[in-house]
């Protein structure tokens, strides 16, 4: 890791590991985030996303490895980091018994600033909750809470923003709005690290890291991840979808098979079997009107593929 890299990147992680007893929450995580980037950390629940965020926001210490945020070491210069990052935890963590306005005010003041000073940053978001500014935070709806939490995390104009699953439990419309807001913040020059279990949100990031069981599977732009999908992917649709899934999995030349919305996504051991073979096999199993079509891989398919490759390489 040379010095130039450290200066260019806003967040820099080098071989970070953290265990809770025998559970390895993070294993040798290394990555860099450039200034003004939206960096997505995509992975299922329990993959280690929150642990990583808590290390980078100086809430807990890593067992080994080093990390810098905004050019400052997370262990030695935690006090400085705390002045320059915004953190929005996955769980709503504002004062429920204070009003919207009071919460914002408290967080502005503890950062030695005022709502007025950085109002331009939060304006677009705050106008939406302003009608409820006298309402206690505990009485807000889920989407409103999320917006308030984002305002509170932004009020001191942080240079890096950490958002831990900001859209979990938020309705699709609010989710969309939320991502539009992130785009605007990026234009303000704020570096954003966002974690999410939703694969569809991954495409909205500049770069993403796919994480599972405390390890990064891949760090790439969403386009490249999709382009690097090396298999032929097929969608299979039939009448009895759950029986179809079972039969597909029992097919001897099947490589991967996952339920994906209203279809199944499969890849075949291409040197052993063709789609026609599969069609015949399914007919013998009594499936009628089976549609098999080629399709383009999504981020979710890539994630599944990478998970599969990893488990194969273990065996």
């Amino acid at each position: 890791m040379n010095k130039n890299n450290c200066q260019l990147s806003t967040v820099n992680c080098h071989l970070i590991s953290k265990s809770y007893g025998v559970v390895k929450a993070l294993e040798n995580i290394s990555f860099e985030v450039e200034k003004g980037e939206i960096f997505g950390i995509i992975g299922p629940d329990g993959a280690g996303k929150t642990t990583l965020f808590r290390i980078l926001t100086t809430l807990i210490l890593a067992d080994s490895g080093t990390a810098t945020v905004d050019g400052r070491d997370v262990v030695k210069e935690y006090n400085e980091i705390r002045k320059h990052v915004g953190y929005m935890p996955g769980r709503f963590s504002l004062y429920q018994d204070l009003t919207v306005e009071e919460n914002l005010d408290v967080f502005a003041k503890v950062f030695n600033t005022s709502i007025e000073e950085n109002y331009h940053l939060i304006k677009d978001i705050y106008v939406q909750i302003e009608p409820f500014k006298k309402r206690r935070a505990g009485k807000l709806s889920g989407g409103m809470k999320q917006k308030l939490a984002l305002c509170c995390a932004l009020i001191h104009k942080p240079s890096v923003l950490f958002l831990d699953e900001p859209t979990t439990g938020v309705d699709p419309v609010s989710r969309k709005e939320f991502w539009e807001m992130l785009k605007r913040l990026k234009n303000e020059g704020i570096t954003i690290l966002v974690s999410t279990p939703y694969m569809d949100e991954a495409a909205l990031c500049d770069r993403i890291a796919l994480i599972q069981n405390g390890q990064f599977l891949k760090i790439e732009t969403p386009e490249n991840i999709v382009n690097q999908f090396a298999q032929e992917l097929w969608t299979v649709k039939g009448v009895q979808m759950s029986k179809l899934l079972n039969d597909l999995r029992q097919y001897e030349h099947i490589r991967t098979c996952f339920a994906f919305g209203d279809t199944h996504h499969i890849t075949l051991e291409s040197n052993m079997s063709t789609v026609e073979n599969l069609q015949d096999y399914l007919q013998t199993k009594g499936h009628l009107q089976v549609e098999i079509k080629p399709t383009k891989a999504s981020i979710e398919d890539c994630f599944m593929e990478l998970t599969f490759e990893k488990s194969e390489s273990y065996d």
Binding site: N79, R82, P89, R91, L94, Y95, V110, C152
Partner: peptide, 13 residues
């Protein structure tokens, strides 16, 4: 319990 202490811990307080 409510997690607010964590939010306070990432401030300069």
């Amino acid at each position: 319990e409510s997690g607010t202490i964590e939010q306070m811990n990432v401030t300069p307080v």
